[in-house]
Design a protein around this nucleic acid. Structure first.
Lengths: 126, 126
DNA sequence: CAGGATCCTTCTGGATACTG
DNA sequence: CAGTATCCAGAAGGATCCTG
C-alpha cells in the first residue's frame, strides 16, 4: 500500500473512470433515481420532465439518449398520434441504481455535514 | 408513486444534489479513493500526484482545496524546507469513502457492460 | 516541494424556435 | 407530445511560468 505500485493504475479506461463517465452528464443519476424510485422503472418523457423540476427539454432528451447508448435504459416508441415514448430501466440500469441510491442515502444521512455546501440556491459549488 | 408528488422535490439544495456537487470536480472521488485505499488515509502532495497519473498540479491543488473546504480532508503543513504538506481524511471523508468504494466496486463488477464506454483512450464519452 | 497566477481550449447546459 | 437545431454564456480543466 504505497505509491508507485501500478496494480490498479488510473488509466483513462479503468473501471472507476468509466463509472465516473456516467456521472459526467449532470442529470443522469437523477433520471435514474426518479425512474426507479418514483415510477417503478418505466415512465414517459413528459412524466420524467415533470418529475425533475429544472431540467430543460434539451437536457432531458440528451441525457436519455446517452443513458440509452450506455445500456442503462431502453426506449419504446408507441406509433400513435401524438407520439408516446416510454423509457425503461434495463437490468444494467437496475443494478446501477443500487450504488446510486446508496450515494443519495449517504447524502441524506450526512445532510448536516453538507449544509455548508450550496449555501444559497443559484450559486454552484466553490 | 407517481408524478407531481412533491415529497422529495429536486430542489437545487436537496441532499442528492449536494452529493453530486462532490463529484462535480472530476478528480475528487479519485483523490478520495487513492488517499484511502493506497495510503491509509494520509499522504503528501507529491505522493498523491504520482498515484494519480494524468492529474495536473493545478487540478490536484484545486481539488485538495475544495475537499478541504468541504470537510473531507484536513491539511497539515510541516514548516520545513522544502515544505512538506500532508493531507488526511476526516471522519466525514472516511464515511464518504464507503459509498464511493461501492460505486467503484460496481464498476469493476460490471466492467464488461461498460466496455463500450470510453472506446479508445483520448476520446471522452459519446 | 508545494502551490499560486495566467492563458486558452473544450465542454456543459440553458434559452429559444421549429418539425412531425 | 416528443424531439431537433442553433446560439451562446459560463464553467472545467490542461499547460506553462513563477514564487517561497
Amino acid at each position: 500500500m504505497h505509491a508507485g505500485s501500478p496494480d490498479e493504475e488510473w488509466r483513462e479506461d479503468c473501471a472507476p473512470r468509466r463509472v465516473l463517465e456516467l456521472f459526467a452528464t449532470k442529470w443522469t443519476s437523477m433520471v435514474l433515481h426518479t425512474l426507479h424510485a418514483r415510477h417503478g422503472g418505466t415512465a414517459r418523457t413528459g412524466v420524467l420532465q415533470r418529475s425533475l423540476p429544472g431540467i430543460s427539454k434539451k437536457m432531458l432528451t440528451q441525457t436519455l439518449r446517452e443513458m440509452e447508448a450506455s445500456g442503462l435504459i431502453t426506449r419504446h416508441v408507441e406509433t400513435v398520434v401524438p407520439p408516446a415514448v416510454e423509457y425503461r430501466l434495463t437490468p444494467l440500469g437496475e443494478r446501477f441504481v443500487v450504488p446510486v441510491e446508496l450515494l443519495y442515502a449517504w447524502g441524506r444521512d450526512n445532510a448536516d455535514a453538507l449544509d455548508f455546501l450550496v449555501p444559497r440556491p443559484g450559486s454552484r459549488r466553490r
